[in-house]
Simulated scan of single mutants.
Amino acid sequence: MSGLTAVTALAFGATLMAAPSASAVGSSACTENIKDATLPVVQWDHADMYTSPSFKSKVKKSVFAGNKVRVYCTAKHGSWYYGKFGKTKGWMEEHAFF
């Protein structure tokens, strides 16, 4: 039984290594990865970063206009972006950037 567990663990680890970069940042809601993008916040005076791609989710941080967010992927047909500002990772709606 332990041999099967080791094989399963190795297979799982190999799958993680081969997964797209969005998986590496911890978001299962991503539908499309973005390669090397940093976007400035342009919405009003600030935009909120949420725990999931929904206005009903918890706000993790407010990012003020002019600050740049490293984005990794999108969800819901590009209307939400998953990214990182400082040490905080979360979701921001597209109008924060465009």
Rank of each mutant, 00 (worst) to 15 (best):
M1W: 01
M1R: 02
M1N: 00
M1P: 00
S2F: 13
S2A: 09
G3A: 08
L4W: 00
T5P: 00
A6D: 11
A6R: 10
A6T: 06
A6K: 05
V7Q: 14
V7N: 05
V7E: 14
T8A: 11
A9M: 01
A9I: 08
A11E: 15
A11P: 06
F12M: 07
F12A: 12
F12Y: 09
F12K: 09
F12V: 08
F12N: 12
G13V: 07
A14P: 05
T15Y: 12
L16T: 12
M17C: 11
A18Y: 06
A18W: 10
A19L: 15
A19S: 15
A19V: 05
A19Y: 09
P20H: 02
S21Q: 06
A24R: 11
V25E: 05
V25C: 07
V25T: 12
V25A: 05
V25P: 04
G26E: 11
S27E: 14
S27Q: 13
A29Q: 13
C30G: 01
C30I: 02
T31D: 11
T31Q: 12
E32W: 03
E32H: 09
I34D: 01
K35Q: 15
K35F: 10
K35Y: 14
D36A: 14
D36N: 13
T38M: 00
T38Q: 04
L39D: 01
L39E: 06
L39P: 02
P40I: 00
P40E: 02
V41M: 13
V41N: 13
V41R: 14
W44G: 10
D48F: 04
D48W: 01
M49L: 04
Y50E: 01
Y50G: 03
T51F: 04
T51V: 08
S52W: 00
S52M: 05
S52D: 10
S52K: 12
P53G: 02
P53K: 05
P53Y: 02
P53S: 05
F55W: 15
F55H: 14
K56F: 09
S57H: 10
S57L: 10
K58M: 13
V59F: 07
K60L: 03
K60Q: 03
K61Y: 11
S62E: 06
V63W: 04
V63H: 05
V63Y: 04
V63I: 14
V63D: 02
F64L: 09
F64Y: 15
A65F: 00
A65N: 03
A65M: 04
A65T: 13
G66L: 06
G66D: 10
V69Q: 03
V69E: 01
R70S: 11
R70G: 00
Y72I: 07
Y72K: 08
Y72A: 14
Y72F: 15
T74E: 14
H77P: 00
H77R: 14
H77K: 15
H77I: 07
G78H: 09
G78R: 06
G78D: 08
S79V: 13
S79F: 15
G83T: 08
G83F: 06
G83K: 04
K84F: 02
K84D: 05
F85L: 08
F85Y: 15
F85C: 09
G86M: 12
G86R: 13
G86K: 13
T88I: 10
T88C: 06
W91Q: 05
W91R: 08
M92E: 09
M92T: 03
E94S: 03
E94H: 04
H95K: 08
A96Q: 01
A96W: 00
